[in-house]
Each structure stands twice: as structure tokens, then as C-alpha cells.
Amino acid sequence: MVSDHYSHALSSVRNLLLTAIEPIEKLATLPITAYHFFQQDYETIEDLKQANQRLATENLLLKAEQQQLPQLRLEITRLNQLLNTASQLERSKIQIANISHYNLSPYSQTFMLDKGYLDKVDPNQCVIDSHGLIGLITQVTPTSAKVQLITDADIAIPVRIQRTGQRGIAKGSHFNELSVQFIAKSSSVNIGDLIVTSGLGSVYPKGYPVARVTSVTKPKDQPYLEIKARPVAKIGQADKVLILSNDIKIPSNSLFQGDSKLKLIRNGAGK
């Protein structure tokens, strides 16, 4: 128990056991799968038309935004070079996965994905939806993966307040709520501020939205603020998610590749 709770020494045993009970869990989710299957069949044509129109509009907006993306990427690379950034996340590899079932018990908050080792999914990969961070993959079987949600009390995420850059740790509290710890009383935090991943610890990639601040209190006897936040991801509603791979690579055009590049930037040729 102690070994499993405080280290990952038994993770392979746990993965093996999860593989063993996977058929039972699939059988156990048959009623809810059947319910969703039949519910989909009863969607009216009008609903589908509306959904199609909404998706077409979204697609158009996203395409318009995407036109600026290559320019922004170049800009970021140039700024990183100027700031002497040694390493950064290159474009993350992304996989799409379906959620097969949720397990929101009082003990832990998890869900299962339909992709595993065979699809090159590994533990410690982050999972996001279209709004923000959802969780972290903790166990993997050949055909499925267990994701611990950010609202689970056992999870801690290095974050920062996007507006001020103040760093802290976000912890789950089970009730679709997070508490943000270790932010000094002197910091400026407002209700509605966006909290994003800070990238510290190299588990969660930098800059993904996590939650929005819902309440801020200043306890008299403590040096830190008490901050509550609501996750921005649609936890409990999403059925498709994205799995990010955390390959941290030194970009090929980094300053550390050679002096000639440095000279080029200093002379303004890199602009």
C-alpha cells in the first residue's frame, strides 16, 4: 500500500491487473453504451442540421485563426532565440481518443480512454478537450488508458495566473473545483482570472488553460491566499479528447547549435 501510494514501483502490476479486469469493465458499461447508442438514433434531423451549421461556423472561424498561426509560430521562435531559451516544447504530437466510461467515485475521479500501449499511449501523457486540461494518464493497458481527472484530490498541477504570471499549485477537491495553493497574499488575483499550466516539472506542457478563479479569500493567520477555481474543460460531458505527448526537444534552430546562428541573430539577420 505504502509503496503504491508514494511511488510508481507497482505501476506495472497495476497495469497488468487493469488489463485483467478490462473485459469485466467493458461488460459493466454495456448498459450505458447501449443507452447512448439508442439515444443517438433518436436525434431528430433538425438537431443534426443545427449541429452541422454550428460546426461549419466554428470550422470557418478556426480556419481564419489558423491562417495567422505560421506567422505566430515564427514570431515565437524568434523571441525564444532572443530570450536565450534553452529548450521548449515543440509542436506536441496529438492523438484523438474516445472516453469509454467515467468513474466518479468518492475515492477517485477517473475515466477510461479507448487507446493504449498498442496506439503508443504512455503514462504521464496529458489529456485535454477543446476548452482546456482534463487530466493525466496514470495507467495504460494494451487497448485502454486510465486518466486521473484534474479534480481528483490526489493530483497537483504546477500552474500560473495568466494575467500576472504568479506561480502556484492547483489541487483537485472532487466537486468539479480546484484550489490553488502557495500564492502569496501580496499577489493580485481577481475573480475570473484564467489559470494555465506553468510547465514546471515537465509533466504538463506549458500554457494550457486549467481553470478560472471563482473566489479569493485572505486568511488572517496564513501567508497565502485561499483561491478556488472551476475547471474550464467540460469534465463529465466530453466524449472525445486529445492526448498530448510530452516530447521536450531542443529546437534545431536553438542558440546552442553554434556561434554562427548567434551572430546572425545579433546582426539582425534572423529577423
Binding site: 502490476v13 497495476r14 491487473l17 479486469i21 469493465e25 475515492y107 477517473t110 496514470t138
Partner: peptide, 17 residues
């Protein structure tokens, strides 16, 4: 107990105990 721990994502051996 071990299988319950796996299913409920609790420390291995706790339900077994």
C-alpha cells in the same frame, strides 16, 4: 481486494486489507 483496488484506483492492498 486487489481487483477492487485496481477498479477503484485506490492504493493496491487497501481494500484487500
Amino acid at each position: 481486494g486487489i481487483f477492487t483496488d485496481t477498479a477503484m484506483n485506490t492504493p493496491l492492498g487497501s481494500h484487500a486489507l
